[in-house]
Structures are given as structure tokens and as C-alpha cells.
Design a protein around this nucleic acid. Structure first.
Length: 494
RNA sequence: GGUCGGGUGGCCGAGUGGCUAGGCAGAGCUCUGCAAAAGCUCGUACAGCGGUUCGAAUCCGCUCUCGACCUCCA
């Protein structure tokens, strides 16, 4: 019986995870808005929930993972009135809206692939579910919690709050929200500023538009996630994830809509990842401080001292608990780069290790306990930071077995097998890490072995000049030769 | 202004009422023809001030300070 505890944002407590349908898990994560290029900040939730997905599967659950693509325009451009951001930008770039959406969707997928995230089971688009959204809105209207004004439909938050805990998820108090309302200039169509749109009437110049019972328009701010999650995961499902910044109003509104439409709350466990910051400030469009994925991988950005491999970024994100902020800096990324290299090399070393069968009990116990701690870390609200730290504790043991500081045969065959399994399971299957080193071409390998052989011969002759010349010249363009203790040589490309 | 969450060694970052993670950087040593790698050892950090306690960085209060959300935002 899994003992997986999740911090539920809704109750603000760690709770034992128990699925609604035994053995099955429904997981919904708010996906990207494909009106622009994905940036480093976007990487966090998708990598975090990729690990959630992987871990649930590791625990033996059958998981349906739904992550939407927001491709319909219900956005606002800074400093402009509400308008369709997608169509707005499309005009600038002289592209069809759907062409633009496709372009950024592809780019998003490209980034996710490099991060080695597993594709969701279903990736529904907002534009593909207009009908579902309209019928959900109709249901809410028939329940008396929405009203139509000039072709737009709004959710009556005040009425909802009279009988429901509106604001519980995000810790908001409805009266406070209503009060601030009076001071601010309200949007005159709404009964209260707290109300949110379920459907917006489209102005004539608006390119993206659909027919509805209320005239031509487009879906409101939050309805797509409610409609699509219900369609694919049911009226109530297990886990809903997303960034902390979506807690209000997005997720709060989802709860309200779904509660009215279905008669009960939609989600059992809410999970929210914290933000990536840069110089202490949240990385986000509005702050104008984003580093796009393409820039991150190429190093082509004023703030970047070098390019960073997607696996380094993934590792960097997983070295922190998902509910903590994570501050970007070159120093931090470079530390992750080196750390990952060391960890991965130990893993490669481990795969080659053998041992004889008379183990030393104390080392066996130590290793076994360390391995057991890995599960405990993950079960404690997905503490990947501690998983990484724990794996690092095993690194000196692995390297010492290779280097001879630990005698051959000190670890039992059994425990060595466990250790190998643990690294494979945690590093590859759960954390989803891969080798940073690109696989070298066969021809390069052969060419290198020629150089290595020449150098070996030189060393036998104690011809240090030739030996050093080969090593130094290769090092000059980033190929590092390593003389192993047993006389063999290996190379690595920086 | 309201609500919420932080302040941990040079940097990044876990965590816990007493057994003082981990990574990176730094210092010393071992190994090595040299180098790299690896191994060993080291720094006794938890914003400040009070309080509770046998004992707090971990609990409580206050102060300072940073941030998130309150508008699209992962």
C-alpha cells in the first residue's frame, strides 16, 4: 500500500494520497498558453508534474494525465483593453491565428521533449472543446449562478459565496474582495467586480469567434479547464496541478464553476508549484525578465554566461522542493551542471561494478538504509531535493569501490544489485534524467582510440612529451583525457 | 492597503525540538610521471530581540527584511 503524502493546497496540510478509484489516478495540469514562446518559468510545473506522473506510475497506479493547450484567446495584453492576444499578435506577424498557435505549440513540445517529460495521456485544446464549454455555461445559468449581459455571460460570485466557501483555496475573503471592488472602477457589465466571465461577446474585429446561444464570442477565462477536466477525468478527480500564480483567480473560479455545474467540488488534491525567480523577482511576462527556452539552451541571452543543457535545467529544478521558490543564477545552474555530471558518472561507474558475495554487514546495512530513504523522501510530498541529496550520499561509496578505497567484495552481490536498481529507478524512471553526454559517433570513438593507443605506448616508453602533447592538444578544444588507475584511458567532451 | 509565504554557512538549497542534509566553490592531504578524476579531512550556518524548555536554528511574541497573490501570468 503506497504511503504517498501530498501537500494539498486546499486544506494546507499534507494528506495521504488515496485515489477515488483504487489503482487509478486522474491528474490534470494547467498547460501552456500558446500565444508565445515558453520560458524557464514554464519549465517548472511541467517538470514537477512529470515527476508526479512518473512517481504515481512507479507506485503502480494507472494514471490518466491530462494537460491542456490554451489556444483560444481570452487574454489581455498589458495596457490594452481585453482583447484576443492570439489574434492581436497574429495581425502583427501576419499569420493566421491557428498558424501562430501551432508554431508555439510545436515549440512547446520541442522543449518538453528535450526536458524528457513524458507526454500526457490527453492534451486537449480549448478551441477543440467550445461545445463542452458552452454546455457547461448553460448548466451554470440554469442553476441560477450566471447572468447574461450584452452577449457576455458572467458567473455570480457573490451569490455563490453566500452558500459556498469561495476563496478558500487561495485564502481570500469574499468581503475583502467586494470591498476593494467599490473603490475601483468596475467593469459596468458585471454585477460585482468579483464576478468573472464565462463567455465574452466578441467585438467585430475579433478573429477568433464562435457561435453561442448568446451571440458570437469566445469562452471566458477559466471555463476550459473545468469543461475539459470533467470530460476526461470526471466530475471529481484526484489531482489538479499548476503554478501557484494560478491559485487565484483561475483555480478558485474553476472550483466555483464546477461546484455549481456538478453539485460538488471537482478536485480532491490541489498541488501548486512555486515560482522561479530571477534576482528575487518572479520570472514572468509582466516583469519582462523571462529567459526563453531557446535562449536558455543556446546561451543567447544577456543574462546567460553559457548555454545550459535541458537535463541540467531539469536537475536544477529537481534539486529544490517544488513548493519553494527557486532563484535563477548562472552560479546555481553551473553548480547543477557539475553536480549532475558527477552523479551521472557515478551511475555509469555503478553499472560496471561487480562484487564477490561475502559482504560486510555494516556497509550493506548502510547502503540498504540509504536506498530505503529514497522512498521516504518521495512519499513526503515529493521531496526530490532530498532524493538527490540521498543519491549523492551513495556516490562516494560507488567511486570508492571503483577506486579501491573500499575493498572488492565489501558489498554483497545482493546489495549491489539493489543499489543498481535504485539508481536506475530513481535517476531515470522517477527523476527522468538522462545522460548529458551526447552519444559519440562510432567514428569519433575509433579515432579517439587511435590517439589513446599512441599515448599509451608513449607512456610505456616514459615519453612524457608526446603523452602530454596529445592530452593538452585535445584539451585545448574540450576533449579531456582521463588516465584511470588500471592503466586504461577514457575521454569526455566538455 | 488586504491575504499568504519566506529569511539557513562564499553561492544554491533540504531538514529537524537534542543525534548539527546534499551540491557547487575554497583549503589541506592521499593517489598519480604530471594533470584530470576519485577518495579522505576541514569551515560548526540557520535575519534580529525577547520568551517557553533541561535543551531551539526548529515552538510562541515582537521587530527588521524579501517575495507572491489581489489584473494576463507556470
Amino acid at each position: 500500500m503506497p504511503n504517498f503524502k501530498i501537500y494539498n493546497s486546499y486544506t494546507r496540510e499534507k494528506e495521504l494520497f488515496e485515489p477515488i478509484v483504487p489503482g487509478n489516478v486522474g491528474l490534470y495540469v494547467c498547460g501552456p498558453t500558446v500565444s508565445g514562446e515558453s520560458h524557464l518559468g514554464h519549465a517548472r510545473p511541467y517538470i514537477t508534474f512529470d515527476v508526479v506522473y512518473r512517481y504515481l506510475m512507479h507506485l503502480g497506479y494507472r494514471v490518466r494525465y491530462v494537460r491542456n493547450i490554451t489556444d483560444a484567446g481570452h487574454f489581455e495584453e498589458e495596457g490594452k483593453e481585453a482583447e484576443d492576444k492570439v489574434s492581436d499578435k497574429a495581425k502583427l506577424e501576419r499569420l493566421e491565428p491557428m498558424e501562430l498557435v501551432q508554431k508555439y505549440t510545436n515549440l512547446f513540445h520541442w522543449g518538453m521533449r528535450l526536458f524528457n517529460t513524458i507526454e500526457p495521456s490527453i492534451e486537449p485544446t480549448a478551441t477543440g472543446h467550445i461545445i463542452e464549454q458552452i454546455s457547461m455555461i448553460e448548466k451554470i445559468m440554469s442553476e441560477g449562478y450566471a447572468y447574461e449581459v450584452n452577449g457576455s455571460v458572467y458567473f455570480d460570485v457573490k451569490k455563490y459565496a453566500d452558500t459556498h466557501a469561495y476563496g478558500k483555496l487561495s485564502g481570500r475573503i469574499i468581503d475583502d474582495l467586494l470591498e476593494t471592488t467599490r473603490d475601483l472602477e468596475g467593469q459596468n457589465e458585471k454585477r460585482n467586480k468579483v464576478d468573472f466571465a464565462l463567455w465574452k461577446s466578441a467585438p467585430p474585429q475579433h478573429i477568433m469567434r464562435w457561435k453561442s446561444p448568446w451571440g458570437e464570442g469566445f469562452p471566458g477565462w477559466h471555463i476550459e479547464c473545468s469543461a475539459m477536466s470533467a470530460k476526461y477525468l470526471g466530475d471529481v478527480f484526484d489531482i489538479h496541478g499548476g503554478g501557484m500564480d494560478l491559485q487565484f483567480p483561475h483555480h478558485e473560479s474553476e472550483i466555483a464553476q464546477s461546484t455549481i455545474a456538478h453539485g460538488h467540488a471537482p478536485v480532491r488534491y490541489w498541488m501548486h508549484n512555486n515560482m522561479i525567480t530571477i534576482n528575487g523577482k518572479k520570472m514572468g511576462k509582466s516583469y519582462n525578465n523571462v529567459i526563453k527556452l531557446t535562449e536558455l539552451f543556446s546561451g543567447n541571452h544577456p543574462l546567460l554566461e553559457q548555454p545550459y543543457h535541458p537535463m541540467v535545467v531539469r536537475f536544477y529544478i529537481l534539486q529544490t522542493h517544488y513548493r519553494s521558490t527557486l532563484d535563477f543564477s548562472n552560479e546555481a545552474l553551473q553548480a547543477s551542471e557539475k553536480g549532475l555530471k558527477r552523479l551521472w558518472e557515478a551511475y555509469e561507474t555503478l553499472k560496471q561494478l561487480t562484487t564477490s558475495d561475502h559482504g560486510d554487514a555494516s556497509l550493506d546495512i548502510q547502503v540498504k538504509e540509504t536506498i530505503a530513504a529514497l522512498d521516504a523522501c518521495m512519499n513526503d510530498d515529493l521531496n526530490t531535493a532530498q532524493v538527490v541529496a540521498t543519491l549523492f550520499e551513495l556516490v562516494p561509496i560507488i567511486n570508492s569501490m571503483k577506486g579501491g578505497q573500499i575493498q572488492q567484495g565489501t558489498l554483497s552481490t545482493n546489495t549491489l544489485t539493489l543499489l543498481k536498481q535504485a539508481f536506475k529507478t530513481y535517476l531515470e524512471d522517477i527523476l527522468g534524467l538522462q545522460s548529458v553526454q551526447e552519444s559519440q559517433g562510432d567514428k569519433l570513438d575509433r579515432a579517439m582510440s587511435v590517439l589513446i593507443d599512441i599515448r599509451k605506448e608513449a607512456r610505456i616508453r616514459k615519453d612524457w612529451t608526446t603523452s602530454d602533447e596529445i592530452r593538452n592538444k585535445l584539451a585545448a578544444f574540450g576533449i579531456m583525457l582521463k588516465d584511470e588507475k588500471d592503466g586504461s584511458m577514457s575521454y569526455a567532451i566538455e
